[in-house]
Design a protein around this nucleic acid. Structure first.
Lengths: 214, 214
DNA sequence: ACCTGAACACCGTTCAAGT
DNA sequence: ACCTGAACACCGTTCAAGT
């Protein structure tokens, strides 16, 4: 049933995941779902747990070859693996940011990350701040505030004016620069994978410096 | 009207912001709202614009005394000011993460941030990546994945067991450590302000190093 | 134990009708 | 120009009734 919910979200989006739609995809009526689950909240928390388990499974393969004390490589791998799984479930970040309570599965996931830092020699204090600083990177996503593919008509107008209107000149120039640089672009937009790794490396390098001084 | 929507969200939360409730708070019927706005989406985008404008106003005061070329201090001030405004509107981050199109007002806000980096001497390339790396920090929030105040009964049970169950030991130890450390704690939870600034400084210091080598 | 139809209290939104 | 009642197509959820 959680599987069916995930498939539905993958194929039709999060907003199409209603009790009625989910029931239909299972060949049953909506009210029957309440025999297996307390409410919709339960389903949403449940599918997130399944996603986390997917990440953990993929991690088991990828982490095996890395030294337990090489915290930097391990943390990087954890974040990149999470991101790899989330690419299959693009709705997951939006769901994660709206969840309010944390399940044991998610807790377990964070415990592994924290354990990686401790095993690498972090003090409890630095490890604590590091967990917060990694933030959503630990779960494989960054807050995408630049949905450059879906700019509305008003914004499109700003970018097509020549000369560009005052107050928007820097962004227009940046857009041109990005477009003309074949190395950092993918299909006209930004290279999300590169940007994710750039931010992640910034954080990891910063933590490494603090670690070496502690 | 946008003012009324913001007040409603401030007082009763984002989920209580419905067309019917908003209309009632204006002493009018729900259908009347459609004479002033195309749909609810318009309202949500509109109140975010108002929030951005609040940030810009507060920035006008705080930024005046900082040198235009001191990008680090300026960016830090921008992020902290945004955060300061968001503390008055706790629902705003959740709303920002679900918006899909960007308004000219938001665009303008990002243009100012980008301009700050350019004025500080950043290459266009580094400035571009910096904008992505700052992510939600630029708008004053980090993805709070640790809502430590609202842990459900299952999670509470994990933290109250002695000895702690395997797989959760690092987190339990960290929780104890944080609780016993009066300097880094506020009311038993984490010091969100400290964590925000910690992550922000990590990013700023990292960018500074890249800047000096470019 | 599991399913279901009918109903309830909500949504956002449309439309024809009022002033 | 602005407001409104009635209605539509949706929600999540409850409950009494079926097997």
């Amino acid at each position: 049933m959680l599987r069916a919910a995930i498939d539905l979200a993958d194929e039709r989006g999060l907003e199409e995941l209603s009790m009625r739609n989910l029931a239909e995809s299972l060949g049953v009526k909506a009210m029957s779902l309440y025999n297996h689950v307390a409410n919709k909240e339960d389903i949403l928390n449940g599918i997130l747990d399944v996603i986390i388990e997917e990440i953990q499974e993929e991690l088991a393969d990828r982490e095996a070859s890395i030294s337990p004390t090489d915290w930097k490589q391990r943390v990087r791998t954890r974040c990149l693996t999470a991101r790899h799984v989330l690419l299959r479930h693009k709705w997951a970040p939006n769901l994660m940011t709206t969840r309010t309570t944390m399940s044991p599965t998610v807790l377990r996931y964070f415990d592994d990350m924290l354990g990686t830092l401790i095993a690498g020699g972090f003090t409890m204090d630095l490890a604590h701040h590091a967990m917060h600083a990694l933030g959503s990177n630990a779960l494989g996503f960054t807050q995408e505030l630049f949905e450059s593919d879906d700019l509305g008509p008003e914004v499109a107008a700003i970018f097509s004016q020549d000369p560009p209107p005052p107050g928007y000149r820097n962004l227009v120039e940046m857009a041109k620069h990005v477009e003309h640089d074949a190395e950092t672009t993918l299909g006209g937009g930004c290279d999300d994978q590169f940007e994710f790794e750039f931010a992640l490396n910034l954080l990891l390098d910063g933590l490494e410096r603090l670690f070496e001084r502690s």
